[in-house]
Design a protein around this nucleic acid. Structure first.
Lengths: 253, 253
DNA sequence: GAGTGGTCTAGACCACAAA
DNA sequence: TTGTGGTCTAGACCACTCG
């Protein structure tokens, strides 16, 4: 039952009580919560109020609801660790790009859909690639799948000059991926920088990545630099935050 | 007006229309949306339905609502980039830990509250620190502020053996921070590994970090290793995803 | 068919902000 | 004082799942 005089809204009291019961293990991961109509009786509030409480827990990623079945405590997803050292030249020579290599190592059947297009650089692209705003860039828009499931979105942009007459402008970049093609034309990669952030997904991303409510996406913008420090490529990646974790390692000095 | 026969729920149609208008710039960043009662007239739906639509946009982080004032398009927050190379021994010698150095460089007045406690290692801690589950660990629980505002939560854990009779078990670890104290007792740091993820905040985190609805947190677990590969410290950090971005850099080889 | 969550209404009253 | 969002109710009907 909720305390009507406490000043705390009823739906927050209900949410807090359910949250506490979940944390305490009264409702274990995967377990079903009482039905909304039961909660109405338990707490002495109306159904819309119960639904407000459940909506709150959904937005927190604590529970998922399944139409016709019930509301369930979200079990922790199995998290894949992605180490960011796998971009070495040696690894690339053996494989067809980092993603495919990664997936194969885990026993997934990887696949990817690629769309090529050409754009004028916006401000952000221009800044990262150190080119003029409006300059032409080659865009490789990829949807990556493991066993048919979408696991990553990636949009790669390169100055058009670097890709003209190379397989980078083709759907299939050939063995070793786009980085190998860059190196063949004399653009050896000297270093990488990744900018990592997180945000809530757009509705498009949520449906593509099949994200439950309350699951953010991790965004990675990787810029590959030549040995002289020239930016060669910018890659915007989007991953489900409940399925991936990034690992970076570096020496103390 | 919503299309009643389309099969798409009314509140999603309203949300989609508002989302599109925001994306198109009809409602610019910082601008106020029409009041809920106006939207009732515009779309021909009831107020709870309008509120469902607005709630959706809030959970996406697109808008914020202010009681008594209105609903506003969330302007993009200014994002601080945190480079992860600043942990060099040289930098540490000049400063009192990485956080304080960082804040000072940006013109903030940094401060931190620290609580020390001792715990038995849980499974995750034991795995990261390569110790037995249940072994004693020293815990430094910190709330970091810039100009009085909480900007980061950090919980650092070390095997108790490494901290006994050192300033690491004191609130003030002294010049150079805990890492400097470790090195003084012969535990030179050889490398760092950071595991980066994201999730929705707990209610506690949301209020401490003053997070708006629809803003995730970035989580960083940093493990510091000795030169022989022994784990020395595990640090769990939590940051507001709309205010911070992490940058990692590494050479191609 | 019974039980579940999903959607929607037409109100009501409250709390807060600003003029 | 007026207008805003915040909370809450008592219903209704629909869509989905499962026995």
């Amino acid at each position: 039952m909720v305390d009507r005089r406490s000043g705390v809204p009823a739906f927050r009291q209900v949410a807090a009580d359910l949250r506490q019961k979940i944390a305490a293990g009264d409702y274990a991961p995967g377990a079903q919560l009482p039905s909304e109509r039961e909660l109405v009786d338990t707490y002495g509030v109306s159904r819309p109020t119960v639904r407000d409480a459940v909506n709150l827990l959904r937005a927190e990623g604590l529970v998922t609801s399944e139409h016709g079945r019930g509301v369930f405590v979200r079990p922790p997803a199995s998290i894949q660790r992605i180490a960011r050292s796998r971009l070495s030249r040696a690894a690339r020579e053996r494989n067809r790009g980092a993603f495919l290599a990664d997936a194969a190592a885990r026993g997934f059947t990887p696949s990817a859909s690629v769309k090529i297009r050409f754009e004028q650089a916006d401000g952000r692209t221009a800044a990262h690639l150190a080119i003029d705003e409006g300059a032409e860039v080659t865009v490789r828009d990829r949807v990556m799948r493991a066993d048919g499931l979408v696991v990553q979105l990636a949009v790669s942009r390169l100055p058009r000059e670097l890709t003209r007459d190379t397989a980078i402008e083709q759907v299939d970049t050939g063995p070793g991926g786009a980085y190998a093609r860059l190196e063949e034309t004399g653009h050896r990669i000297g270093s990488y920088v990744e900018h990592v952030g997180a945000r809530m997904p757009t509705p498009d991303e949520a449906s593509l990545l099949q994200l439950a409510d309350g699951v953010p996406v991790v965004t990675i913008t990787r810029v590959a630099y030549g040995e002289d420090g020239t930016p060669l490529e910018m890659n915007d990646m989007v991953l489900a935050a409940d399925r991936y974790e990034l690992s970076y390692e570096w020496p103390a000095e």
